[in-house]
């Protein structure tokens, strides 16, 4: 079970280095060299991962997803923050 680090919309997020990422049948699979673990980010997680290649505020990320996907703002915000919290707990992203 992955723990969840607290993330706020005012933070800036960026991919951590040291991960090998591959697309498999529409889903993103990642090997963390640092952790020695494999992860499946799924389709939506892969989309979010692509959008945080460069430093991006959590607020901008949510706004970008809202423009592309049919989802309520509160649902999108809560689920994206939860997902980023899991990535942060696994040290896959940097938050500032």
């Amino acid at each position: 079970m992955i723990e969840n680090q607290v993330v706020s919309v005012s933070q800036v997020v960026k991919q951590n280095e040291g991960n090998i990422v591959s697309d498999m049948d529409g889903e993103k699979v990642m090997l963390s060299i640092n952790k020695g673990k494999y992860y499946n980010l799924g389709e939506m997680g892969g989309e979010i991962w692509d959008q945080i290649k460069e430093p991006t505020s959590v607020k901008e990320l949510i706004e970008s997803l809202l423009a592309q996907y049919d989802v309520e703002e509160s649902e999108c915000r809560d689920q994206v923050i939860s997902f980023l919290g899991m990535l942060a707990s696994e040290e896959l992203i940097q938050l500032s």
Binding site: V29, Y38, D70, E75
Partner: peptide
């Protein structure tokens, strides 16, 4: 036309 939203999940693969 907006795309269908799916909850983003992080799954640890047992490899």
């Amino acid at each position: 036309m907006k795309r269908e939203w799916k909850k983003p999940l992080l799954e640890v693969l047992d490899v």
